[in-house]
């Protein structure tokens, strides 16, 4: 039996979720500390959302241990939820109400007084840059506005722990950056964030620590930079060829230049500590690519290495 250490808000040991025959989460161990931004990365269907729903106390676990804010979700669901903020994958705003009413009515569900929710709604609309749309219906708002409203709504009870399930999916770059900005501010205020995403740049931007999930299990864990160090090289050399010449390069022994090479339909990826010198060696061997690109390894390289390039669903 594990005990919850100091400053650990979420502790899972051997956590399992099954729907009939189907195993959504196959026994994971996770600890989220107070004040950090923690990420769940993984392809669609890896079990991220099921994990989030268990932490949000809206999905009873099948097996294992789970403690949220030091309490048991099965027993203390309402008391835990009173201190959580939840941003679901799909916005579930109340389309029959206005922006302001959405915030007020939601605050009432937490037992806040009418005066409190009125003040809170004004403050949160300011935060989400929605004050001008206060008395508009929700339906015609843009995707980014709806998402900001959903996040504002999740803050109505001043949560200690904020759960964000793919917060920026479907948003344009401007809206994404604005949201990241908001989330960063919350983190600075001491709110603990748990984020699921399949955007690697988002995970690198926001997360102090993350786990990569694949096929309902955790396959890697650590800080983004540590994961890159562990699972990839410092740089990647990308080589493109004229149609048909890629095979010649492979026959010419390009694979021997580096420890790991990936062959894609349109280019070769060479994982290396120094891209420029690898490129020079290749030239020396008489390999003539159409174009070449040296870039730093990213979390995306780690992710694709761990979860593979084929579609999961």
């Amino acid at each position: 039996m594990t005990t919850v250490g100091d400053g650990v808000l979420v502790q899972a040991n051997g956590l399992v979720k099954r729907f009939g025959e189907f195993t959504a989460v196959g026994g994971i161990d996770v600890a989220v500390r107070k004040g950090e931004a923690f990420g769940f990365l993984g392809p669609n269907g890896a079990g991220k959302s099921s994990t989030m729903r268990m932490v949000a106390c809206v999905s009873p676990r099948t097996e294992g241990e789970l403690s949220v804010l030091g309490m048991d979700p099965d027993r203390d669901g309402p008391r835990i939820r009173a201190r959580l903020g939840v941003v679901p994958q799909l916005d579930n705003l109340d389309t029959e109400l206005t922006v302001r009413q959405n915030l007020q009515v939601y605050g009432r569900y937490f037992g806040l007084s009418r005066a409190t929710v009125r003040a809170k709604a004004t403050e949160l609309m300011e935060f989400a840059q929605l004050s001008e749309r206060a008395d508009d219906e929700v339906e015609p708002l843009s995707g980014g506005m709806k998402r900001r409203l959903t996040i504002a709504r999740s803050l109505v009870n001043d949560p200690e722990l904020l759960l964000l399930d793919e917060p920026t999916t479907g948003l344009d770059p401007q809206a994404r950056h604005l949201l990241w900005d908001k989330l960063y501010r919350l983190k600075q205020q001491g709110v603990t964030l748990i984020i699921t995403t399949h955007f690697m740049d988002e995970a690198e931007q926001l997360c102090d620590r993350l786990v990569v999930m694949d096929h309902s299990r955790i396959v890697a864990e650590g800080a983004p930079s540590a994961l890159i160090k562990q699972y990839s090289t410092r740089e990647v050399l990308e080589l493109r060829f004229n149609p048909g010449e890629q095979q010649d390069a492979l026959d010419n022994g390009v694979a021997d230049l580096v420890e790991r090479i990936e062959v894609l339909p349109d280019r070769l990826l060479l994982y290396t500590e120094n891209g420029e010198s690898t490129l020079e060696t290749a030239h020396a061997k008489g390999i003539r690519p159409l174009s070449s690109l040296v870039r730093r390894s990213t979390l995306e390289d780690v992710f694709l290495r761990l979860t593979g390039r084929s579609l999961v669903d």
């Binding site: 149609p243 048909g244 095979q247 062959v263 339909p265 349109d266």
Partner: peptide, 8 residues
């Protein structure tokens, strides 16, 4: 590996 062919 599939060869790239002209647009058909």
């Amino acid at each position: 590996m599939p060869q790239v062919s002209a647009p058909t």
